[in-house]
Amino acid sequence: MGLTERTNRNVDLTYWEGEIPVNYVYTYGLGLEAFFRALKEQGKFLASRCEDCGVTYLPARVFCERCLGKLETTFAVPGTGKVYAYTVVHRNVDESPKEEPVVLALVDMDGTDCRFVHYLTGVEPGEVKVGMAVKPVLKAKKDRKGGIEDIVGFAPA
């Protein structure tokens, strides 16, 4: 009935099982490589800015999508922000129930024109408010691997 309803029904139909037998190696790309190195090594959030368009990108990018100008310098922004929207997720990708509902938010990142999607931590689902100020919670430096999970989530500021 719903978008995530399981499909393993009507097994009286004749069918084959198959797969596309490949997997993938993704690179970070030039912009994200710089962003995640700074996050991992210095706990900093690197942004880049297109002066022509007046847009500040976070994470840093190497080009501006609006004018296709090159973005050649980066600078750190605080990593703090405000909740723009949130959801309370009850199901995993395979539709199995989560043991505890997880709060997920879009965070308007201070000093930028971008938002992060990430978990909210240290707050009960019923206490989340759109507009509330949040700060990033990073893993300890020794545990950071250079990925989005180096950020545990965002907590009330």
Binding site: T4, L32, Y86, T87, R91, V130
Partner: peptide, 22 residues
């Protein structure tokens, strides 16, 4: 995005839930 979003195990419903909330 394979680097900034996939590690969080997103589902499509996230997007709709966030948009509907906003």
């Amino acid at each position: 995005d394979h680097t900034t979003e996939q590690p969080l195990n997103p589902t499509l419903i996230w997007i709709f839930a966030l948009e509907m909330n906003r």
